[in-house]
């Protein structure tokens, strides 16, 4: 087991734990954090996979992840979140 692959597994575990937390909420703002998570952790996993699997073209996918984090984040914040979801009580 190479170090890069072990770290990729560790980061995936991190991502999943964080995603479960983000999906719980409680406010819509907490859910939007998923965009940030994938931008950083997702592209880090892809970078490590590119090294571990010897596939440099995965770097392009990581680039798209980082770019999309910005686009979905802006779409989230500017377009979708006009009011509180009915079942979301702000703390």
């Amino acid at each position: 087991m190479t170090l890069t692959f072990a770290l990729a597994i560790f980061l995936l575990l991190n991502l999943i734990v964080a995603l479960v937390r983000v999906a719980r909420g409680p406010t819509p703002a907490d859910r939007l954090l998923a965009a940030l998570l994938f931008g950083t952790t997702g592209s880090a996993i892809l970078l490590l996979l590119a090294e571990a699997m010897g596939q440099p073209s995965l770097l392009d996918t990581a680039l798209v992840f980082a770019l999309l984090a910005a686009i979905t984040g802006v779409a989230f914040a500017r377009r979708a979140w006009r009011e509180e979801a009915p079942d979301d009580e702000p703390r």
Partner: peptide, 9 residues
């Protein structure tokens, strides 16, 4: 991306 999205959120 994090700076912008963090600011917007």
């Amino acid at each position: 991306a994090s700076a912008t999205v963090g600011f917007l959120i």
